[in-house]
Design a protein around this nucleic acid. Structure first.
Length: 894
RNA sequence: GGGCGAUUAGCUCAAUUGGCUAGAGCACUUGCCUUACAAGCAAGGGGUCAUAGGUUCGAGUCCUAUAUCGCCCACCA
């Protein structure tokens, strides 16, 4: 490992090197080991067609932090990676690619098309995997799975057949969401509803027996009227109830439509009369069933009107709408048109307007599965973080409708159902059946449809472990520990995994679900291709380094809140990694010795600052660990950041410089070097889950130099590489509250003197004299630290004592019970000094007012807890003391 | 129409569950190229915690409205 470090950190030199090293040494790999406790995460499998975006980055950074942290804690960690075959998305991508060669998938036929998809997958499908590696994701790549793998396909078939046998899967003709472009059915939640500024067309339907009279119906989709078979009114609607049973004539078409009564109709909406089109509207479909009406289909699967549309046959549905309106207008059937805002369903893949469509589809009976999933979360077998997502999950499960799982596309898991060509019976089987289960005919034809992609994703936590085989993995890793995902797929994926886990494995698939926020652009908009407002994580990694990207993102991630992101945010992480790099440089430069001797630290060796930094470190370890346990990643990261930068670098390193440069003894220098190295080593450990590359690099350098200098930093360590080393443990022996408090006072005094220097325009290099006066009962042992004080405030002569008087012509600062005086002779600017004191006085008096108001309130002393009252009383006394001191100073200034 | 989240410094966000003068990062001001780091150091300035009520000894925090923004859900044609 290199020991010469350049002045600026260059991530490019080390990131790929370390990733490769870790992976090649099997550090990401896990095998079942019953002597250790497992910690398992299954990755939300990105689409094979996917390219890493910021959402993926956030998602995987969090998972990697959890995995790396638990790995260091000694868990047998498995991060199971893989990709999703993403049926419709992938088919679309490959179709588009073929289109550039002027090939349509129909020309190729099913088998050859699927070959093309596999070819595409093998060529491009690993893009996102490579990108995840760039981020530092420590997945067990030896176990990588793909939802179309042989093993996973077996799991899909097994599940389908099992559910079918249990009566949880059925086939039937229902109205479903149809995408006329993808030409497939979609599940309810694959439809995205968008507000749309449309029109409400009021159309006059004449009475058959009195053609000059009309009933007016309102619709947003006039083209569907061609499939009308009735008009419905509410049975309680006085305007219409007498007309029920009468017959209307459908304009243009001339079909006779009975007026029917149905509770569904809302009398207050529109005209209170509804056209009934069971073939093209889900509500009408239900209504049609209730009244035994036979639907009339007028729109074909490609969105084009069929032969029953009469003159409109062959027209696209929207063309037809316009043309039909023209004709209705011409023939005076339009009573009025009102602008109307309503939501329109779109395909979540291609954004085409969804058409409700009647077809033969496979469904999963959701009620029993959902009930089990509800129970599981209510008894906390699954816990959500933040917990508010549980409500969202529950409300979906409580209202869930049966899940349409068949898709009329080619890329996906073919439904394991065969139709007998002789008797029409359905044979559902694990293996290709040789004969019909009913009539034994051998002329069987497999169902053409494939399963919804989410069907296979729902099995991910156990299909990836080898199920339905009884594998050691399944026994050891299932159920997994934590699922990390975003709120967008709580229904699609999380709820369905819980349902399938419970139904198939008889156990929830994971115990915790952590839902992180969504990454937005700096204006708070979603990042999207169409807006072009995305920030490419790989570009950022290239520019700032993977660690900087990870750290910046995680610092911005407060529990479950969305994150507004802009490129400049990554500077923070970069600055921090650079700071860390330079802290390491400092340490390494100051460790090398020509003839190092090994020393054993004795308690008596520790200086004040040593005890302080060790105590602070201990506090940091405790807090960081606790925050990680609570999924508060940004708090955990910020704690270590603050300790590293503002305690370790700003103070500890600065304080011990003289011990290194002008040591009072070899031993004391060695003590400082040892503490410096050990604490920094622990910092690297704490930061490793967040910023793995730089910490591993620096740890290796540090270890090398430390061993040359005969400093043992391996005590208590488990492994020579940080990635496998032990997570820092809090050690109560280092806890030293008094030391931390005294240091805080010292820091205040030092700041006060530096402030005087700054306000009086005195150069930092110029030595000053100072008098520190501690008031009567003040006990902080300042005099024990006069060297430290002199060094850090650059003081020549320092006098510390009780109730000392203010030297003439001095600037002063009141810090709690302490007064700092800096005699300045003619340098002092009396006007500026007086101004400064007056300002401080005003601050204190304002504060005193607040405190007094509380104390003067009778109820306060009566009702507030005693310790709060005492606290306020003490504060009042302290304030009065300070104020009187400042007044004396002001008197002295004249 | 229902639900959820947000509203705190110029910007992006915190605030340990109601109790010490509301904290960070960026930006800003002043002084420093001090032999770890100018991607840095030192010292500062900056806030009626969206609004209005209420509960309480005490409210950024709890309750009730209101406003603005965002997300999700819903079969009103």
């Amino acid at each position: 490992m290199q020991t010469k470090l350049s002045t600026q950190y260059n991530p490019k030199e080390i990131e790929d090197k370390w990733y490769q090293f870790w992976e090649e040494n099997g550090f990401f790999h896990s095998v079942p080991d019953p002597s250790k406790e497992p910690y398992t995460i299954v990755i939300p499998p990105p689409n094979v067609t996917g390219v890493l975006h910021m959402g993926h980055a956030l998602n995987n950074i969090i998972q990697d932090i959890l995995i790396r942290w638990r790995r260091m804690q000694g868990y047998n960690t498995l991060w199971m990676p893989g990709t999703d075959h993403a049926g419709i998305a992938t088919q679309n991508v490959v179709e588009r690619e073929l289109a550039t060669k002027r090939i349509k998938r129909e020309q190729l036929g099913r088998e050859r098309f699927i070959e093309e998809v596999w070819k595409w997958k093998n060529q491009y499908g690993s893009t996102i995997i490579k990108q995840l590696k760039k981020l530092g994701s420590s997945c067990d790549w030896a176990r990588e799975r793909f939802t179309m793998d042989e093993g996973l396909s077996t799991a899909v078939k097994e599940t389908f057949v099992t559910l079918y046998e249990r009566g949880l899967i059925y086939k039937g003709k229902y109205i479903i969401n149809w995408c006329p472009r993808c030409r497939t059915a979609l599940a309810d939640d694959e439809v995205e509803h968008e507000e749309h500024e449309g029109h409400l067309w009021h159309i006059k339907y004449p009475f058959r027996d009195a053609p000059h009279l009309f009933l007016v119906v309102a619709t947003t989709r006039p083209e569907t009227m061609l499939g009308d078979i009735a008009v419905a009114v509410n049975p309680k609607d006085d305007r219409y109830k007498d007309m029920v049973g009468e017959i209307l004539t459908l304009p243009i078409v001339g079909r006779e439509l009975p007026i029917i009564a149905d509770e569904f109709v809302d009398p207050s909406f529109g005209t209170g009369a509804v056209k009934v089109t069971p073939a093209h509207d889900p509500n009408d479909f239900e209504m049609g069933k209730r009244h035994n009406l036979t639907p009339i289909v007028v729109i074909q699967e490609n969105g084009v009107m069929n032969e029953l549309a009469g003159d409109y046959e062959g027209m696209d549905r929207f063309e037809c709408r316009d043309a039909l309106i023209e004709e209705l207008k011409l023939k005076k059937f339009i009573e009025m048109v009102t602008p109307y805002k309503h939501s329109v369903g779109h395909c979540y893949r291609c954004h085409t307007v969804i058409e409700p469509y009647i077809s033969d589809q496979w469904f999963v009976r959701m009620r029993p599965l959902a009930d089990a999933a509800i129970k599981a979360s209510k008894k906390k077998s699954v816990t959500f973080f933040p917990e508010r997502w549980e409500k969202i999950y529950l409300s979906w499960l409580e209202n869930v409708r049966d899940w349409c799982i068949s898709r009329q596309i080619w890329w996906g898991h073919r439904i394991p159902a065969w139709y007998c060509q002789d008797c029409d019976a359905i044979t559902v089987a694990r293996d290709v059946p040789t004969k019909c289960s009913k009539c034994n005919s051998i002329t069987l034809k497999q169902d053409e449809d494939v399963l919804d992609t989410w069907f296979s994703s729902a099995l991910w936590p156990f299909s990836t472990m080898g199920w339905p085989r009884e594998t050691p993995e399944l026994r050891y890793y299932y159920p997994t520990s934590t699922l990390v995902t975003d709120r967008g797929i709580i229904y699609f994926w999380v709820a369905r995994m819980v349902m399938m886990g419970l139904e198939i494995m008889r156990h929830v698939p994971f115990t915790n679900v952590y839902i992180h926020g969504t990454i937005l652009d700096e204006l708070g908009r979603k990042m999207s291709k169409s807006l072009g407002n995305g920030i490419d994580p790989l570009v950022m990694i290239n520019q700032y380094g993977a660690d900087a990207v990870r750290f910046s993102i995680i610092v911005l991630t407060t529990e479950g809140q969305d994150i507004k992101l802009s490129e400049s945010r990554f500077e923070m992480g970069r600055n921090f990694t650079n700071k860390l790099w330079n802290a390491a440089r400092f340490i390494i430069m100051n460790l090398e010795e020509e003839h190092p001797e090994e020393i054993r630290l004795e308690p008596a060796d520790y200086q004040f600052e040593d005890r302080w930094i060790l105590s602070r470190l201990n506090t940091t370890i405790k807090a960081c660990t606790l925050y990680l346990e609570q999924f508060k990643f940004n708090d955990a990261a910020m704690k270590v950041y603050d300790f590293t930068w503002h305690s370790f670098c700003d103070w500890y390193i600065e304080i011990i410089k003289t011990r290194l440069y002008e040591p009072i003894s070899y031993r004391d220098k060695k003590v400082a070097q040892t503490i410096l190295t050990k604490v920094f080593g622990q910092i690297l450990h704490l930061l490793h889950p967040f910023i793995p590359f730089i910490t591993e690099e620096l740890w290796q350098s540090l270890k090398g130099v430390a061993s040359k200098s005969k400093i043992d930093i391996m005590e208590g360590m488990r492994h020579e590489y940080l990635i496998r080393d032990a997570w820092p443990q809090e050690d109560k022996r280092y806890e030293d509250q008094v030391c931390e408090e005294n240091m805080a006072i010292l820091q205040d005094v030092i700041r006060a003197i530096r402030n005087i220097r700054s306000k009086m325009n005195i150069r930092e290099k110029q030595k000053l004299d100072a008098v520190i006066s501690v008031s009567g009962d003040g006990e902080c042992g300042l005099e024990n630290h006069s060297d430290l004080l002199k060094r850090m405030a650059n003081i020549e002569h320092l006098e510390i004592g009780k109730d000392l008087t203010k030297p003439a012509n001095s600037a002063s600062e009141v810090v709690g019970k302490i007064q700092a005086f800096v005699p300045l002779a003619d340098i002092i600017d009396p006007v500026a000094e007086k101004e400064r004191q007056l300002k401080h006085l005003k601050q204190l008096e304002d504060y005193l007012l607040v405190v007094r108001r509380k104390l003067e309130n009778k109820n306060f002393s009566a009702r507030a807890p005693a310790h709060v009252v005492t606290m306020e009383q003490n504060r009042e006394r302290e304030l009065l003391e300070q104020i009187s001191k400042i007044k004396l100073i002001l008197n002295d200034l004249g």
